[in-house]
């Protein structure tokens, strides 16, 4: 589906660095054209809320000779690209989370790339590449066998 730049600019109206963010998302879309974008309310740990852009989709992770489509959701902060995205796994109803070094029980993703985030060297495409690499070492989701 065609990437709608104008729609994205409208969704990102309140973002501090809208043009930078749109340019970067155009680049993400070139590598990962199946992500869906929407503006939703994110609730922070301190219960504050903010309308933020998020994109959901799957990333291809090779494991034991098979490629799995791991569902993720990335929330882009309104100070992007000067703050890292907040990243979650989005397991389907028949998937379980394998808590590990990079994933907690709520499906939140932790990566060195996020900890060391710094503009301009850190970019979403680079983040996703590291996510794929780490998930290939330690798969974060498993499929529950059907009864």
């Amino acid at each position: 589906m065609e990437f709608d730049c104008e729609e994205l600019r409208r969704l990102l109206a309140k973002y501090k660095f809208r043009d930078l963010t749109v340019e970067e998302l155009k680049n993400v879309n070139m590598f990962y054209p199946h992500f869906r974008y929407s503006l939703d309310t994110y609730v922070f740990k301190d219960s504050s809320q903010r309308d933020l852009l998020n994109f959901t989709g799957t990333i291809p992770v090779m494991y034991q000779g098979n490629t799995y489509n791991i569902p993720i959701c990335l929330w882009i902060l309104d100070s992007h690209p000067f703050a890292p995205p907040i990243c979650f796994l989005k397991p389907t109803a028949n998937m379980g989370i394998s808590v590990g070094k990079h994933v907690d029980a709520q499906g939140r993703i932790y990566l060195p790339y996020l900890q060391n985030w710094s503009h301009p060297k850190s970019v979403i495409v680079g983040l996703i590449k590291e996510m794929i690499a780490k998930f290939q070492e330690e798969l974060p989701l498993y499929s529950r066998s059907s009864s």
């Binding site: 791991i70 998937m95 498993y142 066998s145």
Partner: peptide
Amino acid sequence: LNGGTIPTAPPSYT
């Protein structure tokens, strides 16, 4: 829907 890939994950091993 914009034709995204279907989520999949490997089976768990007991």
